[in-house]
Nucleic acid binder design. Structure first.
Lengths: 214, 214
DNA sequence: CGCACAATTGATCACGATCAAAACCAGTGG
DNA sequence: CCACTGGTTTTGATCGTGATCAATTGTGCG
């Protein structure tokens, strides 16, 4: 099953047009934009990993998605950004004014395909996460997530997870303890290796995908 | 907090254009379209309640959203419908060819607003459901859901739930037993009344919303 | 070194799933 | 009108998983 991580491989028009205004660098933890801020530009991730986070009225933090190089994020709900975007790793990104995007869309041959390339990543991420969270069992959820990360950034062989376990926990709606324990199970099976506390390597994507299917 | 139910109050262009091809009636349980089918038309719900359902690879059924009169659904992921749409109650709907929609969008003044009116309902529903499922506690989830239904179809006073408890369970990723027991709690508090087994009336929307906030 | 934070491990507990059965309701046909 | 059927709701008893609480270890950084 596919999960809550965008797989927008084909960007809107290949790349952003020449008027690439900013090409910015961020360090882990810095934010690209804030939930509720007025949205006036889109963000194209050039390198690194970005997470989208939402806070409930009571202050509970949820990670609603992860985004990777090639993804375009920042399409508003109404006029505001629908989440806060934070750099997980070092991140570099470029921006494009939202107005320009609107014009660009108008000239696109197949509007639907174009939408598929921009609206998709963030909204689709939420949709797929809802399917993920609808499934029961910590191991199934974890493996579904890992399988999706592998499909997105893996080379078919080993894959190193780019985000900390706390983020995975916040994404999967579980506690860090449960995430850690589930990782240990996978380690005991031999499907992952845990190196240096923060660096988890997935050794057998196939086995992971199989475990994800209940 | 807002939830996984669309609140697309303002339809795309008021109504579908004159070439309203079909105006169809459905009885409970019948489907509007199937997940995976090639998408060639949009559906505008005129009356009744529709649910979107997805099946995981293992056959688990999930209700991913509820849609109400005024909502436009059927926008594809790629070229296929992303879920199966089923009538919960008696439903009447009209359709519009997807090609026509694409042209119509092209002529829209504010493309973003237009997107907000069509892409929004279904994708946004998934996004909000992911936030809902990310919260812990059966009562909190139930009340968040109920509060949202009231906001969507309620008149401010009492509201009668239009969907069976099994659907609510499938939407909230809980068992029907848990849904039922949670309803009984609310009944004991006096915030809902259960009439005739299938007909649940929400008496105190305010209290519900309060309980939803943990 | 010492600080702050993430990860790890263990012990306990509670919530919701599961299993089982009965009650309720709608629809159908005798 | 009543008996029968199928599906939903209801209620009860038990069980298991993951949350919670608490404490230790590991890691990066000033």
């Amino acid at each position: 099953m596919r999960l809550g991580i965008s797989d927008n491989v084909v960007p809107l028009h290949g790349d952003f047009p020449d008027q690439r205004l900013h090409m910015t660098q961020l360090t882990p933890g810095q934010t690209l934009f804030w939930e509720g801020d007025e949205a006036n530009q889109l963000f194209r991730i050039e390198s690194g990993v970005v997470r989208s986070v939402n806070f409930s009225a009571e202050g509970e933090r949820q990670v609603t998605g992860f985004f990777f190089p090639g993804d375009v994020i920042g399409l508003p709900r109404g006029h505001d950004y629908r989440y806060t975007a934070e750099a997980v790793t070092e991140v570099s990104y470029s921006t494009q004014p939202l107005k320009g995007w609107s014009e660009e869309m108008r000239c696109t041959r197949d509007l639907n395909d174009a939408l598929f390339g921009t609206v998709q990543p963030e909204l689709e991420a939420g949709y797929m996460r809802s399917l993920l969270l609808g499934r029961q069992g910590a191991l199934v959820r974890m493996c579904s997530f890992l399988a999706d990360v592998c499909a997105r950034i893996g080379n078919g062989e080993e894959t190193v997870l780019p985000m900390p376990q706390t983020d995975i926990a916040a994404y999967l709606a579980m506690t860090p303890e449960t995430v850690c324990r589930t990782f240990r199970k996978l380690k005991d099976i031999g499907t992952v290796r845990i190196e240096k506390h923060d660096c988890i390597r997935i050794l057998e994507p196939g086995r992971i995908a199989q475990l994800a299917s209940h």
